[in-house]
Design a protein around this nucleic acid. Structure first.
Lengths: 108, 108
DNA sequence: TTTCTATTTGGTATTATAGCCAAATACTCC
DNA sequence: GGAGTATTTGGCTATAATACCAAATAGAAA
């Protein structure tokens, strides 16, 4: 693994890491339906607004969302909707895991 | 965000988190070319073998790879190659970020 | 059985992440 | 300008992740 390769892998990991949290996945899912302001997301999530803001900044920093200040509110929206394609594969993995689990139990 | 929804998001996050590390992305990429045993991966990665083994167990635990012991070696292979489809989108995000970066610099 | 080799597991130190509260900003409206 | 509102930032604590070393395990070969 050389330096250039490591750098590329770390750049990828950074983006994937930004998605690797249930709250941020929730946000991505919400934004897939359209833009939302911070307070709307905060209400649905139920965490402290500063927590929500920090999750949004992780997503923004990774380039997954963009923000747009209008009046008092800041609106966020998905920047790369291709991210949504991940979930089909992820669900496959989850179902496959469940299948293996039942197979193991049956075996015992 | 109700309990069932949270549970689903956490299941997804677990799998994404398993991918969110440069070493594990390297492993996934290697395995996309075919199965590898731990010592082959260790040699390419250059970390302690216990470190590599733990990375593999994270991937295995997430259901991304499966292992197969043959003789003294344990061979790992990708379980859900659809994971590889992620990287196109990730690279998009990276390039888009680079584009924005240059635009910002030009602006200044 | 004993020895050797590949891998995993346990322990531990270091670093990163997540959450809350309080304080700072930024902007609107009076 | 001053008050009020939405959001971000800084500080702190608790928890989780990473990496290494050393020890344990599993199986092969002698």
């Amino acid at each position: 693994m050389n330096a250039a390769q490591l750098e590329q892998l770390e750049a990828r990991a950074k983006i994937i890491k930004a998605l690797a949290h249930s709250t941020r996945l929730f946000i991505v899912n919400e934004l897939s339906k359209g833009e939302r302001c911070v307070c709307e997301l905060q209400e649905e999530i139920g965490a402290d607004i500063s927590t929500v803001s920090k999750h949004l900044s992780v997503l923004k920093n990774a380039g997954i969302v963009v923000d747009d200040k209008r009046g008092l509110q800041v609106y966020y929206r998905l920047c790369c909707p291709c991210i949504l394609n991940f979930f089909g594969c992820i669900e496959n993995v989850i179902q496959e895991n469940a299948r293996k689990q039942t197979a193991l139990v049956r075996e015992a």
